[in-house]
Write a protein that binds this DNA or RNA. Structure first.
Lengths: 203, 203
DNA sequence: TTGAAGATACTTACCGCTCGGTAGGGAGGC
DNA sequence: GCCTCCCTACCGAGCGGTAAGTATCTTCAA
């Protein structure tokens, strides 16, 4: 009835305002500084609330971290799921896939930072996350596309599709890591990566 | 003059026994847990000395960390320097290079862990290390080999040698990261990587 | 229509612990 | 007597987490 009144309390109105704000700040902080080096104090200071407010919505630092990962994983998973539905030629499918991952990282580096760190550099004391399953799922998606290309005679069959998928994902991960370090993307970087992956470095 | 006398003090005799022991433990700890999560207390406990003993030999935690990196970088640099002197065919040179890096990592994962972490996940609060220069130097070594192969007509020239070197190094870094996560090396993994790098995934 | 009960969503103020680092002293060789 | 090398004992700061109180909204009996 009075839509522009401050509406000081309650979830219903704007979907748990403070909880969402904490989560967004936490994503950025955990992504930038890691688990151990991110203090609850720094989060609540950035949000503009107090510690018990945070502990009211998230039971502990570990719980908050798990929640952060849950939010980010579901977002990234979509890029991997969307790929196989594309019906274009192999090179173009792979190129779009790589491009979508890299450009999403340019727009918002936090998910990539969070996931790559959690996979390659889990910290002691941080809660377990089962990224193995997440990683395996994404790898399987990519491998399925390559296997399909193997069946069509476009891709060599002496190496398993999983091995090839692992190699390609390695190229992408590495380029993403370089991007996170600050190296800007050339406009045709996805094309370059896929071209080398498919045709190799030979003449 | 008295080379085999115990000589309980002073650097000369056994090269500063305690200092070396601290350094070795610190390499392993910093590599395993990172800078922030490694406490001086845990190091001296593992070594079997006290904090002031450590602070006597290394002025601060940051200084110790820099010293650790200095020791490790000079070790790894050798693998990159040794490669170009090899006069075998391209595929074999690259394969040996990859193989030497990966197998050194199996023997002692600390250097790889330390360097890859410092490059991809520097922590706030940790001292600056100028890994940019280290990374650029290693990349240039690899690029030089590829440029030589380009001149010999073995490698495509539409992509710069640096771009190809970056891609290959990405494949190696990624495989090393997987190794550090626990995925064991297949006996022919270096061959697979180089084969895909040179010939691509196509049929 | 009201007003007490209760749930919700926070606040201020504190706790115990671990951290990097140090003051000051002592043992032993030159 | 001095220098090297290392010890015991301590410091202030920052950490994750909490006890206890408070303002606001919801519910429902009188």
């Amino acid at each position: 009835m009075h839509p522009d009144i401050p509406q000081p309390r309650l979830p219903s109105g704007k979907e748990n305002d403070l909880r969402v704000r904490i989560l967004l700040v936490a994503i950025e902080r955990f992504a930038t500084h890691g688990y151990g080096a991110t203090s609850i104090r720094s989060i609540v200071e950035a949000v503009g609330c107090t510690k018990p407010a945070l502990y009211y919505h998230f039971g502990s630092k570990a719980d908050l971290f798990v929640e952060v990962h849950r939010a980010v994983q579901s977002k990234v998973r979509k890029a991997f799921v969307a790929m196989p539905q594309n019906a274009a030629p192999l090179a173009e499918r792979l190129e779009r896939f790589v491009s979508s991952l890299l450009e999403a990282t340019v727009e918002d580096p936090s998910p990539a930072r969070l996931l790559l760190t959690a996979i390659h550099r889990p910290e002691q004391g941080q809660p377990p996350l089962d990224l193995e399953a997440f990683h395996a799922h994404n790898l399987a998606r990519l491998a399925a596309v390559l296997q399909q290309a193997q069946a069509a005679g476009e891709v060599r069959e002496d190496l398993a599709a999983e091995v090839l998928a692992e190699i390609l994902l390695g190229m992408v991960h590495h380029r993403a890591l370089e991007l996170l370090r600050g190296k800007p993307l050339a406009h045709d970087v996805s094309k370059q990566i896929i071209d080398v992956f498919i045709h190799g470095a030979r003449t």
